[in-house]
Design a binder for these strands. Sequence first.
DNA 1: GCGACAG
DNA 2: ATCTTGTCGC
Length: 248
Amino acid sequence: MNYCSYCVQDAGEQRGLESAGPWPRTVEDLILVQKRIGQATSHLWTPAGRVFSAAGCFVCFSRGRVGAGRPGEAGWAAAALLRSGRIVAAATVCGTAQAAYEPGLLALREGLLLEEAVRRLPERPDLLLVNATGRDHPRGAGLAVHLGIRLALPTVGVTRNPLLASGEPPAEARGSLSPLFLGGTIVAYWLRTQRGKRPLVAHAAWQTDARTAASVLLALTTRWRTPEPLREARRLAREARSEKRGDG
DNA sequence: GCGACAG
DNA sequence: ATCTTGTCGC
């Protein structure tokens, strides 16, 4: 297990991100960026039967809060890399939330910390799982799409609920899917990863369509409802929070 | 106008 | 997201 870590001293200091520029810091700027991102497309990525590595990233904030949170509050992010069914690397960072949570503007709150955690992994994954929507978004630019563009990695979104898309729930068997529509297109699928458990939402994001998202998430889910890389990233972020650290 | 609305 | 309580299963 190779752990890397880095504490984000200031949201303004994003070493090595010159090509992508800084994250938007205001609602107006983020919305402008999202309008551009929502139009961007690129060739689809598929596992195509090959072995692929997958990382998950997750951010949590200080406990005891209620509601949408506040800008400036402490946050911990982690990324975990899975290859051949094993977690082989992970990274954690600590820093601050850039904004309160607001539907459609999640990137403002979580984007910087998540990107930093993924960049601290000792190697780049083939695919990144993000705890957010992708194309299911008012401007087609959910955080999973945004992170994919910034990191130049194929991404898949994983959420508990859709943001705007709607569709019927899936059947009970593991692997059952049902489409989630937004503006007449399938932007995500309900996916039953465990019989008897609530389905999760598999989101099309950067270089992925909804079908690929669902297929990949099913493959990354065996024993638990949540895909393994995401589950491990969540555990590590909460562990860092409980120890009030960001330095692995 | 009102409510809903990823985390 | 986080909190709380209760319940089921290993």
